[in-house]
């Protein structure tokens, strides 16, 4: 068990900074998710922790020991699961899981014991004699996790391990993974571009863009209190609405942001609520079963053409005719303010 300390970490590929001065403190036993789009540097950061990539500058400490110099991957006490699972194609499931144990010269009977224990934990005991090509995606993923588990690592590094699963399987796999991590309490760093995964799995989320950390926080903090417009629009589906209001009470160059689910018809709010009211010209209503997305424009906006989205839960049965203007409102406590130039959060 160990925490990870990352200080001023940089990685340059030619002229391109892939990771650009990252500071991060990962707590012992924590499930930390690195969230970002492709090219954000999240995978490079993970590969530097693993020792597969040499940092250009900066420090990495795992469990108090500095590893960024010449400590090879095998000596860092880590286990990693790649997106492709990287199973050894010519070895059976048993041999795949046993491979790390053979490296550490574990006695035969002990290997047998540990492989069976891990396979039992993931419910793949009956596949032990098969080859990876004979397994489904979900089964392969569990084999890869088993192989990571038997090393008794100090840290798990997971690189989009659910990305190759079909959508149906992904939900249950996510739940399994979270339960498994809770049980074994090993520090886990998980890379994903999928914000639903990040929100569902992470104790904390690190939002990355262009090699820099934008925000670190619990899923709730990142969702409710984004530090800038990038995080505000990157996390959440549909993204946070941002608009410049023609409102003299606000300092110039202020963007107002609110989540689509907070923009509701005026009359659903009680009288006690302090509201910001908008005249919402509805262009189109999208029926999605549990929700309706309402697309339109807000007349109070400085750019009245910009599309604003409201997300109405199925529990509000009001009919919203398309092509008409309605009174919509957002509780004032749920408004967020940003600087239009820097994108940074502003306190009103």
């Amino acid at each position: 068990m160990a925490g990870i300390e990352i200080r001023n970490l940089r990685k340059q590929f030619g002229d391109l900074p892939a990771v650009d001065g990252v500071n991060l403190s990962i707590r012992d036993g924590e499930f930390l998710v690195l969230l970002g789009s492709s090219g954000s540097g999240k995978t490079t950061l993970l590969r530097m922790i693993a020792g597969l990539e040499h940092p250009t500058a900066g420090e990495i400490h795992i469990g108090g020991e500095r590893v960024d110099g010449d400590v090879p991957p095998r000596a860092r006490g880590i286990a990693m699961v790649f997106q492709s699972y990287a199973l050894y194609p010519h070895r059976t499931v048993f041999q795949n899981i046993a491979f790390p144990l053979e490296a550490s010269r574990t006695p035969r009977n002990r290997i047998e014991e540990k492989v069976r224990w891990a396979a039992d934990m993931f419910g793949i005991t009956r596949y032990l004699d098969r080859y990876p090509r004979q397994l489904s995606g979900g089964e392969r993923q569990r084999v890869a996790l088993c192989r990571a588990l038997v090393r008794d690592p100090k840290v798990f590094l997971l690189d989009e391990p659910l990305a190759n699963l079909d959508a149906k399987l992904r939900n249950t796999a996510r739940d399994d993974l979270k339960q498994f991590q809770r049980r074994i309490q090993t520090t886990t760093v998980y890379v994903t571009h999928d914000q639903v995964e990040a929100m569902g799995l992470g104790d904390r989320i690190v939002v990355m863009e262009h090699g820099k950390v934008r925000q670190v926080g619990t899923p709730q903090e990142v969702y409710e209190d984004p530090v800038d417009t990038f995080v505000a629009t990157f996390v959440g589906q549909p993204p946070m609405n941002l608009l410049a209001l023609r409102d003299a009470s606000l300092p110039p160059g202020t963007l107002v942001g609110f989540r689509p689910e907070h923009l509701l018809p005026r009359n659903v709010f009680g009288p006690g609520e302090e509201l910001a009211t908008f005249r919402f010209a509805v262009r189109r209503v999208e029926y999605l079963g549990s929700d309706r997305y309402v697309y339109g424009a807000v007349a109070e906006s400085a750019a009245p053409e910009a599309t604003i989205i409201a997300k109405l839960p199925g529990t509000i049965p009001l009919t919203i005719p398309e092509g008409e203007t309605h009174e919509f409102a957002v509780p004032r406590r749920l408004l967020r303010y940003f600087d239009a130039d820097t994108g940074l959060r502003r306190r009103p």
Partner: peptide, 27 residues
């Protein structure tokens, strides 16, 4: 041939030389 299988072996406890001898030829 994906590099990842050899990287995986390096994480799984093998030196680069051991990877070249034990893992790479089969690939």
């Amino acid at each position: 041939v994906p590099w990842e299988i050899e990287e995986q072996a390096m994480i799984d406890g093998y030196s680069r030389l051991a990877v070249i001898v034990k893992v790479a030829p089969r690939l």
